[in-house]
């Protein structure tokens, strides 16, 4: 762990990269490409988060265990998001979302 520490300039480069990515994400959000925008925004966000975690939070220089713990947490959070979201997307028998009272008025005989 007590190897070489990043210099001031390393932090500076990461900072510039983060700001650049933020501006890029901002700019791309005006492109008329529909749902692709969401994917781009999430990807750029993930990249930024990775930069912060790796360099500002020094995960690159940490021991394996310290990298493992947040990785497992992130993996579980992703699983939670994906499987939960998969539910409304793939509902067939049941309505995808609650309906306003008028719309879901009795359909029976």
């Amino acid at each position: 762990m007590e190897t070489r520490h990043p210099s001031f300039w390393h932090y500076g480069i990461v900072y510039v990269a983060l700001m650049g990515l933020a501006v890029l994400s901002f700019g791309l959000s005006f492109l008329p490409i529909g749902g692709w925008q969401d994917a781009i925004a999430i990807l750029i966000g993930a990249l930024k988060a990775l930069l912060v975690a790796a360099y500002f939070m020094h995960l690159v220089e940490q021991r394996f265990a310290n990298r493992l713990v947040p990785s497992v947490a992130v993996a579980l959070a992703v699983i939670l998001v994906v499987i939960t979201t998969l539910d409304p997307i793939t509902r067939k028998t049941f309505p995808r979302a609650p309906m306003p009272l008028e719309a879901s008025a009795p359909v029976g005989p």
Binding site: P70, A73, V74, L76, A77, V78, L80, V81, T84, T85, D87, P88, I89, R96, A97
Partner: peptide
């Protein structure tokens, strides 16, 4: 992370609905 993960799961699921 999992705390906010739960909230993002709600966000994503509701976005899928609406």
């Amino acid at each position: 992370v999992t705390l906010f993960g739960g909230l993002f799961a709600l966000y994503a699921a509701y976005r899928a609905m609406y």
